[in-house]
């Protein structure tokens, strides 16, 4: 058992599938368990309710999103113990990948990112935490993870904030090619949602930035 992540609310462990389900030697599939941990500061009625409902919501979002983009396959959800079990995606995080590829390949990756977000938004899904740490690149495909802050919504405001957070993430983590990269992301987005919608989103991002909220939070991401 290896701990691969520890956020404010969940612990992520990697395990071998066979240990969990099939005690057989030849099958080797690695899985990830994301468990929402108990918080001693809140009373158990609130604590359990939140952990349960968020576990359920995250798995629903992942499941729904899987119809349109790549996400890890869900193997199991346990609402009482508040964990989900999913496929381990072995690959490069887009965060590191973007820093080591040439411009041609970067264009492909960024287009793909925009295309994915477009598909989510078009189908009423808000990811809620679009950063390049939450994207894993494997065999020319990008997998989206961590729907823990997501929701089902078609509101322009929410889509705008979603895209704005991605823009901030690119700006802070990948500032060298930020302008080209974001433009390419928006091309990928436009490819799915059309030119009108793209303009609407860009306008909304502008408004959100003027309001001065959500100021470059992503530069502070403390993920390893």
């Amino acid at each position: 058992m290896v701990i691969i992540g520890r956020g404010a609310e969940a612990i992520l462990e990697m395990k071998d599938f066979k240990d969990l389900y099939f005690p057989s030697k030849d099958l080797k599939i690695e899985i990830v368990i994301k468990k929402r941990i108990k918080k001693g500061y809140r009373i158990k009625e609130i604590d359990l309710h939140l952990r349960r409902s968020r576990t359920i919501l995250e798995s629903r979002l992942m499941h729904e999103a899987k119809k349109y983009v790549r996400t890890p396959t869900l193997f199991e959800i346990d609402p009482d113990e508040c964990y989900i079990v999913m496929e381990y995606i072995e690959g490069d995080r887009v965060k590191e990948l973007l820093e080591k590829i040439n411009s041609e390949k970067r264009e492909k990756v960024c287009f793909k990112i925009g295309d994915m977000v477009g598909k989510l938004h078009k189908n009423g899904i808000i990811h809620g935490d679009l950063t390049t740490s939450n994207m894993i690149y494997k065999f020319n495909e990008i997998y989206l993870i961590d729907f823990g802050l997501g929701e089902f919504s078609r509101e322009l405001e929410k889509q705008g904030v979603d895209m704005h957070l991605l823009k901030e993430a690119l700006q802070s983590t990948h500032y060298k090619y930020f302008l080209e990269d974001f433009e390419t992301v928006m091309e990928g987005y436009e490819y799915i949602v059309g030119n009108e919608k793209k303009k609407e989103i860009l306008k909304r991002i502008n408004e959100i930035e003027k309001r001065g909220r959500y100021v470059r939070r992503d530069s502070l991401y403390n993920k390893q």
């Binding site: 956020g7 404010a8 609310e9 918080k39 939070r217 502070l220 991401y221 403390n222």
Partner: peptide, 8 residues
């Protein structure tokens, strides 16, 4: 708590 985790 999220802010603590976020900022380190």
């Amino acid at each position: 708590e999220r802010a603590l985790a976020h900022t380190g």
